[in-house]
Computed example of a mutant assay.
Amino acid sequence: MDQQTSGAWKGRPVDSEVAAQEAWQQSGKWFTYEGHAIFSRMAGQGEPLLLIHGFPTASWDWHRLWPMLVQGNHLLAPDMLGFGFSDKPRHYAYSIEDQSDLIQGMLEGLGLTSVHLLAHDYGCSVAQELLAREQEGTLPFEIASVCFLNGALFPEVHSPLLIQNLLRSPLGGLISRALTRRSFERSFMKLFGSKSHPDQQDLDDFWHLITYNNGRGILHQLIHFMEERRCHRHRWVSALQNARQPMRLISGVADPVSGAATAQRYQEMISDADVVQLKNVGHYPHFESPWEVFGAYREFRKRQ
């Protein structure tokens, strides 16, 4: 663990005249992990709630849900290393284990003793790793509850897109660097429900997050997490099965990658499985249908 993670936090002023995503960045806070700058948003009061984003985007994914959640929670939303506005080193061994170290160090640095987790996609694997650490007695804080959004919790029912398979192939480096805006949009749009496609400004925002600070050039390195899911399948699924805290899966079942099949597998594998299925919602339920997600999440937390 990099001890620099617990260093001073630096805030930036918000300019109401700048674009929404730029304002998001300017209102962020920064800390250091392994010598690299990590971006994070923090706001609100109440119990700490950590929002862990997915691949290939960033904490911005939560911006539609943020105004609802911030009313009763102390929100923490980092851009993990290699994502969004955080540093994106080219020569780095990206892994779920390392991202979990980053998250663990961030929470330790803030002096937290308990935190709720709300995770999406890639972030679900990070949450599973943190759960495993807690069960092994190596996590210095308590995980109060976990809520998952459309993550490949069970790799055997994950159906990656063609672009994802290409990125993890021997040609991944070339594919990553050659990725165009048009090819990104063509693949990305497949992830959404038929009635909740992002508009042009949304696509501009997502593309900006991916390409910021040469991020396009490391996509093939980040996507190694798909192999990690297979290698750590027993450890991470066992973490779900042995969890002591409340858990819920909120699933956009129109997701072609980790939607209905994942929800069904979750019900098969987890005792007393708590699953909320959202019809006509795809891989990004917190972006596509934030009110539905908020309602399901609020009800989940009220029962605790």
Rank of each mutant, 00 (worst) to 15 (best):
I175L: 03
F184Y: 12
N165D: 02
R168Q: 09
E47M: 12
C147L: 08
T113E: 12
E185V: 12
P198N: 14
Y94G: 09
E227K: 15
D87I: 05
Q245F: 13
I175S: 06
L203F: 12
S187N: 15
P246G: 02
E17L: 12
G72A: 00
H91Y: 06
L191H: 06
Q277K: 15
L110S: 09
L117I: 08
S258F: 02
E156A: 05
T138K: 09
G259T: 04
S100H: 05
D199H: 13
A144N: 06
W24N: 01
S27C: 03
Q135C: 00
F31L: 13
I103M: 08
M80Q: 12
S40M: 14
I96C: 01
H116M: 06
H208T: 14
P48Y: 00
D204F: 14
L130F: 01
S16F: 04
Q200M: 09
M42S: 07
G28W: 04
A260F: 08
L166P: 03
P256Q: 10
L219N: 04
P67I: 04
K190D: 03
S176I: 09
L130M: 10
D121T: 06
L65V: 05
Y284C: 11
T180L: 12
A8E: 11
L209Q: 13
Q71L: 13
E185N: 13
V253I: 15
V257K: 10
Q267L: 02
G259K: 09
G282N: 11
L139E: 00
W30D: 04
A127W: 03
G295K: 13
R168F: 00
T262S: 00
P160A: 01
S95F: 11
G46M: 03
Q128T: 04
S40Y: 02
A260G: 02
L179V: 01
S86A: 10
I223C: 09
Y122E: 04
F192W: 04
H232D: 07
D15N: 12
T113K: 15
A296K: 10
S86E: 07
I38V: 13
L153P: 06
F192N: 05
G123I: 05
G11A: 14
W207H: 11
V70P: 01
H36I: 00
A239T: 03
L81D: 01
C124F: 08
P48N: 01
G215C: 11
S258N: 09
S27T: 10
A77F: 06
H224F: 05
R235D: 03
L110M: 14
E185I: 12
D15V: 06
G28F: 11
A77M: 10
L203M: 15
G282Y: 11
I96T: 09
G282F: 07
Q201N: 13
D204Q: 15
D274C: 14
A58G: 05
Y94F: 08
Q267A: 13
G28Y: 06
Q26S: 13
G259H: 04
A93F: 05
L162C: 01
F188L: 03
D199S: 01
G217D: 15
L167S: 06
G123P: 00
A254L: 08
R64C: 00
G105V: 08
P160C: 08
A239D: 10
